[in-house]
Amino acid sequence: TSQSKEFDPLGPLPPGWEKRTDSNGRVYFVNHNTRITQWEDPRSQGQLNE
Rank of each mutant, 00 (worst) to 15 (best):
T1M: 07
T1V: 01
T1I: 15
S2P: 04
S2H: 09
S2A: 06
Q3I: 15
Q3F: 15
Q3D: 14
S4L: 06
S4I: 03
S4R: 07
S4Q: 05
S4C: 12
K5M: 02
K5F: 04
K5A: 01
K5P: 05
K5Y: 06
K5I: 03
K5G: 00
K5V: 02
E6W: 02
E6V: 03
E6K: 09
E6T: 06
F7N: 09
F7A: 11
F7R: 11
F7K: 09
F7E: 08
F7I: 09
D8P: 11
D8H: 04
D8N: 09
D8K: 14
D8W: 03
D8V: 07
D8L: 08
P9E: 11
P9M: 05
P9Q: 15
P9V: 05
P9F: 02
P9T: 08
P9C: 03
P9Y: 07
P9H: 14
P9L: 06
L10W: 05
L10M: 11
G11E: 05
G11C: 09
G11H: 04
G11Q: 09
G11M: 03
G11P: 04
G11I: 03
P12G: 09
P12Y: 04
P12K: 05
P12V: 07
P12F: 04
L13F: 01
L13T: 02
L13Y: 05
P14F: 04
P14N: 13
P14A: 06
P14H: 12
P15H: 07
P15L: 13
G16L: 04
G16N: 14
G16R: 06
G16K: 08
G16V: 06
W17H: 03
W17D: 01
W17R: 01
W17I: 11
W17Y: 14
W17P: 00
W17C: 02
E18T: 07
E18A: 08
K19Y: 03
K19C: 12
K19W: 05
K19G: 04
R20D: 07
R20P: 00
R20G: 13
R20F: 09
T21S: 10
T21E: 13
T21D: 15
T21M: 06
T21F: 03
T21L: 10
D22K: 15
D22F: 03
D22Q: 07
S23G: 12
S23N: 12
S23D: 10
S23I: 04
S23W: 05
N24I: 04
N24S: 14
N24R: 09
N24D: 15
N24L: 07
N24A: 13
G25S: 10
G25W: 01
G25A: 09
G25V: 00
R26N: 15
R26E: 15
R26C: 06
R26G: 13
R26T: 14
V27Q: 13
V27K: 10
V27S: 13
V27I: 11
V27H: 13
Y28Q: 10
Y28S: 06
F29L: 00
F29P: 01
F29A: 01
F29Q: 02
F29K: 00
F29E: 01
V30T: 10
V30D: 05
N31K: 03
N31D: 07
N31G: 01
N31A: 00
N31Q: 05
H32P: 12
H32Y: 09
H32C: 11
H32A: 12
H32M: 12
H32F: 06
N33P: 12
N33Y: 00
N33S: 13
N33E: 06
T34Q: 11
T34R: 14
T34F: 13
T34C: 13
T34S: 14
T34D: 14
T34E: 09
T34I: 05
T34A: 13
R35V: 02
R35F: 03
R35Y: 10
I36F: 08
I36L: 10
I36S: 08
I36P: 00
I36Y: 09
T37Y: 00
T37A: 12
T37H: 01
Q38H: 00
Q38G: 02
Q38W: 00
Q38L: 03
Q38I: 01
Q38D: 00
Q38F: 00
W39V: 06
W39M: 07
W39L: 07
W39Y: 14
E40G: 10
E40D: 15
D41I: 03
D41K: 03
D41G: 01
D41L: 02
D41A: 03
P42H: 00
P42F: 00
P42L: 00
P42C: 00
P42K: 00
P42S: 01
P42M: 00
R43N: 02
R43W: 01
S44E: 13
S44W: 06
S44I: 08
Q45N: 14
Q45S: 14
Q45L: 10
Q45Y: 03
Q45R: 14
Q45A: 06
Q45H: 06
G46S: 13
G46A: 13
G46L: 10
G46P: 12
G46C: 12
G46F: 01
Q47K: 09
Q47W: 14
Q47N: 14
Q47H: 12
L48Y: 09
L48M: 12
L48I: 15
L48T: 08
L48H: 04
N49W: 15
N49Q: 15
N49P: 03
N49I: 03
E50M: 05
E50G: 05
E50R: 00
E50W: 08
E50V: 09
E50Y: 01
